[in-house]
Amino acid sequence: MINVAIVGAGNISPAHIKGFLEFPQRCKIVAICDIYKEKAAEKKKRFGLNDAIVYENYKEILKMEDVDVVDICTPPYTHANIAVDSLNAGKNVIVEKPMAASLEECDKMLEASRKNKKLLSVISQNRFRTQFMKLKKVVESGLAGDIVHAQVDSFWWRDHSYYDLWWRGTWEKEGGGCTLNHAIHHIDMLIWLLGMPEEVQAVMNNVAHDNAEVEDISIAILKYKNGALAQITSSVVHHGEEQQIVLQGKKARISVPWRVYASVASNNGFPAGRDEKLEKEIQDYYDSIDETRYEGHTPQLDDVLKALELNRDVLVKGEDGRNALELITAIYKAASTRQVVKLPIEKYDPFYTVSGIMASVPHFYEKKTFVENFSDERITFGRDIK
């Protein structure tokens, strides 16, 4: 039995708790912690965690010898300290996205993981969704040809009041705006599908949330070593929240949501119709790939449990979380400096540290008011609301 402690009982914690509860024969939640102890107590009651001990200081959990995994569901600026302390205490760690607030903090977490020989996994639950798993395999099959362009639309919508929460909308505590905390899922997907680019250009602004220092929209252009280009729009100002990743291969277009289109040309190079044979071949291959058993956070938590049970690597490692943060940091640097940013970002770069980022990024508005907690913690998606 793998014993789990949840640190952070806010909006995202139910997704983790429900995920672990899918495997009652393999794991048990033995502690839950939050600086607002009543929130931890409420989650204990709501999910029937009768044997779980409630704490308000995560360091109490680290004294528990029977805790195998610390699952961090706190705001981004706290991730590194909690993770490093947990790893040094001999615990395995799962941490919500983003991995940390800076590359410096990521590297401290990775070093603690290596030094203590403990697992470190960063939540990237969309990698485990059926449509992305299938798209990944289609890309790897080569049926669509080399990918020459990617279009990433990470369109979310959040009302003005979203940034009233005390830690949101600040560079210091949230680490950034929609690029870091919303588009990170799609950015992680892009890296998983195509790898890291070599150059980044970007612009960003805050167009609808004057209670936040951070951006609510950014647009980035990426250049890969093989010449391929990609564009990423990160937003919390898009009504309806339509999201997609479109990959243009030399032979065909493929995407999530799934669609395949293969053009054929006339002798003058203009489109003359569709290559239905190739489209069918790609579609048949896509349909032959098994669907994933679980959705949401559950499959990634299952993967972590399997890694501990079988002494193997997790599918999403700490290095994957760092890669996503490095690309996002490059977007912030490019948008702030109005310059082309080359990857990787080195340790001497001002954007490597939290203090350097704080001194370099624009503060679009001053955050003047805040609330400690929302009474409604539900996470809803506009595309699902009829």
Rank of each mutant, 00 (worst) to 15 (best):
V7Y: 04
G8F: 01
G8A: 00
I12S: 01
C33S: 06
F47K: 10
F47Y: 15
I53S: 06
I61Y: 01
I61T: 10
K63V: 09
M64K: 12
E65L: 06
V70L: 07
D85M: 06
S86R: 02
P98R: 08
A101P: 01
S102K: 00
D107P: 02
K108L: 10
E111D: 14
S124E: 15
H149F: 13
H149N: 12
Q151T: 10
W157S: 02
H160M: 08
Y162P: 00
Y162H: 04
W167Y: 14
M189R: 07
I191S: 02
L193E: 00
P197M: 00
V214G: 14
E215W: 05
S218R: 06
S218H: 03
Q231I: 13
T233G: 04
S234A: 15
V246Y: 07
K250I: 09
V256R: 04
P257T: 07
W258K: 12
V264L: 11
E276D: 07
D290W: 10
R312T: 15
K317P: 01
E319Q: 15
N323R: 13
I328D: 00
A335F: 12
V340F: 09
E346G: 03
T353G: 11
V354N: 11
A359V: 06
Y365T: 08
K368I: 10
F374G: 06
E377F: 09
R378S: 08
F381G: 03
